[in-house]
Design a binder for these strands. Structure first.
Length: 137
DNA sequence: GCCAACGTTGGC
DNA sequence: GCCAACGTTGGC
């Protein structure tokens, strides 16, 4: 099982928007970046990911699951996307500042390159973020 | 194939 | 609202 992180502006597409789509899944469309696309191609059905809000929130807010592997983006078939289902919100959002302040997470892609819209997350980082959320909930 | 210019993103 | 960083594009 691999872990990922999906970044979105809440004004454009928020966690709440995603939850409303329920269990049928939702295309993670609009990605126009080669690195991000490569990460999506590597995803397998059942992989988990974090949902991160950029802009005002700057925090990881929820957990999603890959419900369909990479396929052409219906908004632009030259690109590809995966489908995601919202699983559950974190016990409490974990902010970018907290991630940067945690020595165990300082090498997270999110801290080093916040502009990449789809990122890999290691097992260690995944567990650490969940622990922080639960510890301070 | 390289490199400069440009546009976009996102944190501050 | 500003500025720095990054990725992409296009000219050579």
């Amino acid at each position: 099982m691999a872990y990922w992180l999906f970044k979105s502006e809440p004004g454009t597409w928020s966690w709440d928007d995603h939850v409303e789509h329920g269990k049928k899944g939702q295309e993670w469309d609009g990605v126009r970046n080669f690195q991000a696309r490569n990460h999506m191609r590597a995803m397998k059905k059942g992989d988990n990911g974090f949902f991160y809000h950029s802009g005002e929130d700057k925090a990881i807010v929820g957990v999603v699951e890959v419900s369909a592997e990479a396929h052409p983006d219906s908004t632009d078939t030259k690109w590809e996307c995966v489908d995601l289902v919202a699983i559950e919100p974190l016990a409490r959002p974990v902010s970018l500042a907290e991630i940067k302040a945690d020595p165990a997470l300082e090498n997270m892609v999110l801290a080093r390159n916040p502009r990449l819209s789809v990122q890999p997350v290691t097992d260690v980082e995944w567990k650490r973020v969940l622990k922080i959320a639960e510890a301070k909930a």
